[in-house]
Computed example of a mutant assay.
Amino acid sequence: MDIKTLRIAFPHTIPVLTGYFFLGFAYGLLMHGAGYPFWLAVLCSLVVYAGAAQYAAVPLLGVFDPAGTFLLTLMLNARHIFYGLSMLEKYRNTGKIKSYLIFSLTDETYSILVSVQPPKGVDTRRFYLAVSALNQIYWVVATAAGALLGAAMPFDTTGVEFVMTALFVTLFVEQWLQTKQHRPALIGLGSSLICLWIFGQNFIVPAMVLITVLLLSQQSRLEREGTA
């Protein structure tokens, strides 16, 4: 990864930078408010880096419940299985950096890598690495800032976890405005609402299965419309 690639990748990550500043900052505040030291908040963002799962783990870090923690994390991050499959071809020849690219594939990084083509003359692997690394840097730095400021002055953290929802909405709207083909977004939204109505809070995995089935059934039509 070089400075040139970082400069090219950076503008594409600005929406994530904006969202991660508030998300990571809020996470740092929550960790401090729960009584955890600064270094633990930063370490979690370095080695876990799982967004919603990190938020959910705040009350679990002080409780020895490996089975419950595993099931909760699986439920929250099961969506990674499905959109991770769509990255197999993109990551096929990434060599030594493949492990990090897989580790750092968050929702926000995924949304960039599936919608942005690296400019001509830019190594695709380095571009993927630059986007992934920049996004994690934003998260870690924001976490550190939140934990430090939380230690310096008292904060009421009630409701700050809503920033995660706000970021997902922002990304959805951004992608909607950037693309002319809205059928995949409508399939995802409709499938999620249907599964939420049927399964309640356990809707994530059924929704991802339904979205995958519907998108595969519409693949040929979507490809034709995309090239029309």
Results as ranks from 00 to 15, higher is better:
80 H>M: 09
227 T>V: 10
130 A>W: 08
224 R>A: 15
59 P>R: 08
224 R>P: 10
43 L>E: 05
225 E>P: 08
195 C>D: 12
164 M>P: 08
139 W>A: 10
196 L>V: 09
218 Q>K: 13
65 D>Y: 03
51 G>M: 03
161 E>D: 15
72 L>V: 11
207 A>M: 10
107 D>N: 07
110 Y>H: 02
223 E>V: 12
38 F>D: 03
75 M>V: 13
42 V>N: 06
91 Y>H: 06
26 A>K: 04
154 P>H: 00
197 W>D: 04
89 E>T: 15
124 T>G: 09
81 I>Y: 08
72 L>Y: 04
91 Y>P: 06
43 L>K: 05
221 R>A: 13
90 K>L: 14
155 F>T: 09
196 L>K: 09
11 P>A: 03
139 W>F: 14
217 S>N: 03
209 V>A: 11
219 Q>L: 08
102 I>H: 00
85 L>C: 14
20 Y>D: 00
201 Q>E: 15
90 K>M: 14
114 V>E: 01
170 T>F: 07
212 T>C: 04
90 K>H: 12
166 A>M: 13
145 A>Q: 08
94 T>W: 05
78 A>E: 04
85 L>G: 15
214 L>G: 05
154 P>D: 02
152 A>H: 02
171 L>T: 03
180 K>Q: 12
55 Y>D: 00
173 V>D: 12
23 L>F: 10
72 L>K: 05
182 H>W: 14
188 G>V: 05
220 S>D: 13
197 W>K: 10
17 L>G: 07
40 L>Q: 14
158 T>L: 07
178 Q>V: 11
54 Q>L: 13
151 A>W: 00
187 I>S: 01
34 A>W: 12
13 T>P: 10
190 G>W: 08
59 P>L: 08
76 L>I: 15
30 L>H: 01
206 P>M: 06
121 G>Y: 07
203 F>Q: 10
133 A>D: 06
58 V>K: 01
206 P>V: 14
167 L>C: 11
202 N>W: 10
168 F>P: 13
132 S>N: 14
123 D>E: 14
78 A>W: 09
88 L>S: 14
198 I>F: 05
